[in-house]
Design a binder for these strands. Structure first.
Length: 136
DNA sequence: GCCAACGTTGGC
DNA sequence: GCCAACGTTGGC
């Protein structure tokens, strides 16, 4: 089981909106970058991803789960999208500043390739961030 | 609002 | 196929 991180500008698609979609989830659209698309296509049903808010917030705020693997993006069928549903929020969001301050997370793609909008997360990184977010 | 980092495009 | 120019993302 792989872990992932999905980035979103909260003005465009926020965690709150994601939660409001309920169990049926929502399509993760708008990926227009080959590297990000390749990660999207590697996502398997049931795998989990961090939901990261860019912009003013810059924090991982919740966890989503893949409920439908890659299919044509309904906003541009030349690209791919997956469907995700909210699993739960972090008890306390984990800010980018905290991630950068944690030596054990220095290798995180979020730190090293800041612009990549769909990223793999290692199991170790996943556990550390969950712990920092107050999930046990 | 600025700009570094990075991806993409297009001229050669 | 190289690389300069350009556009975009996203942190600061």
């Amino acid at each position: 089981m792989a872990y992932w991180l999905l980035k979103s500008e909260p003005d465009e698609w926020s965690w709150t909106q994601q939660v409001a979609e309920g169990r049926d989830g929502a399509e993760w659209t708008g990926i227009r970058n080959f590297s990000a698309r390749n990660h999207l296509r590697a996502m398997k049903k049931g795998e989990q991803a961090f939901f990261y808010h860019t912009g003013k917030e810059r924090a991982i705020v919740g966890i989503v789960k893949v409920i439908a693997e890659a299919h044509p993006d309904s906003t541009d069928s030349a690209w791919s999208a997956v469907d995700v549903t909210a699993v739960r929020p972090l008890s306390t969001p984990v800010g980018l500043d905290q991630i950068k301050a944690n030596k054990r997370l220095a290798g995180m793609t979020l730190v090293r390739l800041a612009r990549l909008s769909v990223q793999p997360v290692t199991e170790a990184e996943w556990r550390i961030v969950c712990e920092m977010g107050g999930l046990g």
